[in-house]
């Protein structure tokens, strides 16, 4: 695995070039340009703010709901973009995969990077929202890189898995469109999930809920996620990364025929 990391590092400029190509193409002919990265989470946030302020009331532990929702959507958008982008990255680039050699993990890696660009842009709006609501992050903000790393290891592991899987069975990308939506509603993106009863187990198996809670803890000063669920999330994320990597390596031998 160390050798793989080294080889990937050697091709870092290609990862950047491909990610930049993705970002450029996406926004070149768009009127609002890179602003589109903000619009999706912003609109969802506004819709759900309306719903929860009029129809149902919800307790977010003293955090203004728009901030609660936008933080969740921001992190989720990163997650969803990586998984869905990765599912298509090998099949969409079949002219590269079948014609030119470079380490194949470069393609999912560039998906992660281009999703991070959108994430960074959308995060600027979060800073603005926090200023409006006069929320200043505490010392916990120092843990942000750690939370991001945790989420990225989970997403990268899944990205490696689904990118290869979609070459074998093209329905994977369609299953994911539904699956990622369902997963969002089963995580604490737009509402806090109770941590008792059956949810204690769901949360233990779903690393995204503790990760989302950790984002709100570090950025907004919300209550910290329970240490055991965070530890479980960390373990699961790393396991996903290792397994995803191993599967990708195994499947790689046939990419040239399948793409």
């Amino acid at each position: 695995m160390l050798a793989d990391v080294k080889e990937t590092w050697r091709y870092r400029e290609l990862i950047v070039a491909l990610a930049m190509r993705e970002v450029r193409v996406r926004y070149k002919h768009a009127l609002l340009g890179i602003g589109w990265a903000v619009i999706m989470p912003l609109v969802l946030m506004l819709v759900f703010t309306e719903i929860f302020s009029r129809v149902a009331s919800i307790s977010t532990g003293g955090i203004p709901y728009p901030l609660f929702a936008y933080t969740g959507l921001l992190a989720w958008q990163l997650h969803a973009n990586i998984i869905q982008g990765a599912s298509r990255c090998l099949s969409d680039n079949s002219n590269l995969v079948t014609k030119v050699y470079f380490p194949r993990q470069v393609l999912p890696a560039s998906v992660v990077l281009s999703a991070l660009v959108d994430f960074a842009v959308a995060a600027l709006l979060l800073a603005g929202l926090m200023a409006v609501h006069r929320v200043t992050p505490g010392w916990q903000v120092a843990f942000v890189p750690l939370v991001l790393a945790l989420q990225l290891s989970l997403a990268s592991g899944l990205a490696l898995f689904v990118s290869a899987a979609n070459l074998f069975y093209r329905d994977v990308q369609f299953i994911l469109q539904v699956g990622v939506q369902l997963w969002m509603f089963a995580s604490s993106v737009l509402y806090p999930l109770p941590s008792q009863g059956v949810f204690a187990w769901v949360n233990l198996l779903n690393p995204m809920t503790p990760i989302l809670d950790a984002w709100r803890y570090t950025l907004l000063g919300a209550p910290a996620p329970r240490p055991e669920s965070l530890a479980a999330a960390a373990g699961l994320s790393l396991l996903t990364l290792v397994l995803g990597w191993a599967w990708f390596r195994r499947a790689e031998a046939r990419f040239g025929e399948l793409a």
Binding site: R21, R24, V25, N95, L96, V100
Partner: peptide, 12 residues
């Protein structure tokens, strides 16, 4: 020289 222009994107 197997695939010329690998990765060329028409919009760029």
């Amino acid at each position: 020289l197997i695939e010329l222009g690998a990765g060329f994107h028409p919009y760029l």
